[in-house]
Design a binder for these strands. Structure first.
Length: 311
DNA sequence: CTCCAGGGATGAT
DNA sequence: ATCATCCATGGA
């Protein structure tokens, strides 16, 4: 077991906020993989405890310190949530989300894994994305063991490209199989190098990602935010669109998607992606606990907010 | 600009 | 047990 200081970190909320889909509950913590490394993690107050598989022949370089550094990097324990939250706009909607999501971090996922998972996420809800992720791992990934449990790595682009479209289709992907496989072939070849793309500007990176089969603006923004640490990237899915329309533009029917994008980019600022994640998670869970409240939810804070935002 | 395939889980009746 | 709803991309 290693222990890392992790103030201001809610592990469970982070893993259940719709950014990553493979961590499984086990005892007081979670098991999963970080790249090739099988990991068990649990939070004890301000401390993150982690266990990795004892040094294996596959990873002779892995010692406890390397693993600890990998874990701290993955969970972005170096992000200053105080600074990030302080940069959010000061309005009632954002403040409620910020209070609700205390300790929620945007983690640093492996690029291919993140890209592939979000290609599979199109038209799917969180629970189903978890199933697709598990099916791909179980069928095409490599087996690892941690804490008496078997886990699987996310299959490489080559591993996916080697599979047939039919095999992928029957792994709960449906029509997404074609796009995933086509993108895997590109990423697995010299055609495009996801690591090299780290050097691109936000706009260029988005353009490159959107050129991949099955990747549009929403998924590109997810990958930018969750794998390239572009904290301004602001994915707009139906949840966020609802929040924006209801809370920031109430009773304005004619707001275009284009207008919402411009507003989000300007209004939420340099950590817009964090703001988006907090709004998303808050909306998703707040709507879930009580149905009777859902109709009363658009209280009229929006007038004030939109006035501030549109100026 | 609009329309709609796609498919499996989940919620409502 | 059926029916409606959720969902992003890409192509017509």
């Amino acid at each position: 077991m290693t222990e890392s200081s992790a103030p201001d970190f809610d592990l469970a909320m982070t893993l259940d906020s719709g950014q990553v889909f493979h961590w499984q509950k086990m005892g007081d913590g979670f098991v999963g993989t970080i790249g090739d490394l099988p990991v068990y993690v649990e939070r004890r107050g301000e401390v993150l405890r982690a266990k990795v598989a004892s040094a294996s022949r596959r990873y002779p370089g892995n010692n406890a310190q390397d693993a600890q550094a990998t874990i701290k990097h993955y969970f972005a324990l170096d992000h200053s949530l105080a600074e990030i939250c302080a940069s959010f706009p000061d309005d009632p909607v954002m403040n409620a989300a910020r209070d609700f999501c205390r300790g929620l971090r945007i983690i640093r996922q492996p690029k291919w894994e993140c890209l592939a998972t979000f290609i599979c996420s199109s038209m799917k809800q969180v629970t189903h994305i978890r199933q697709i992720s598990a099916a791909l791992r179980n069928r095409f990934g490599d087996q690892r063991k941690i804490g008496g449990r078997v886990v699987y790595t996310f299959p490489s682009a080559q591993q996916i490209a080697r599979a047939s479209e039919k095999q992928l289709r029957t792994s709960a992907l449906g029509y997404r199989a074609k796009n995933l496989r086509a993108t895997a072939e590109l990423v697995g070849s010299a055609e495009c190098n996801l690591e090299v793309w780290s050097a691109l500007s936000d706009a260029e990176l988005r353009k490159h990602l959107c050129a991949l089969p099955g990747v549009g603006p929403k998924i590109a923004n997810c990958v930018m935010l969750f794998a390239y640490e572009r904290l301004r990237a602001f994915p707009i899915d139906v949840w966020i669109e609802r929040v924006l329309r209801q809370q920031y533009f109430p009773r304005q029917k004619k707001i275009t998607a284009q207008r919402l994008r411009e507003f989000s980019k300007r209004y939420f600022g340099e950590h817009g992606g964090y703001a988006q994640q907090y709004l998303f998670h808050h909306a998703r869970l707040a709507g879930r606990r009580s149905k009777s409240m859902s109709k009363k939810r658009n209280c009229s804070v929006g007038q004030v907010v939109s006035g501030a935002g549109l100026g």
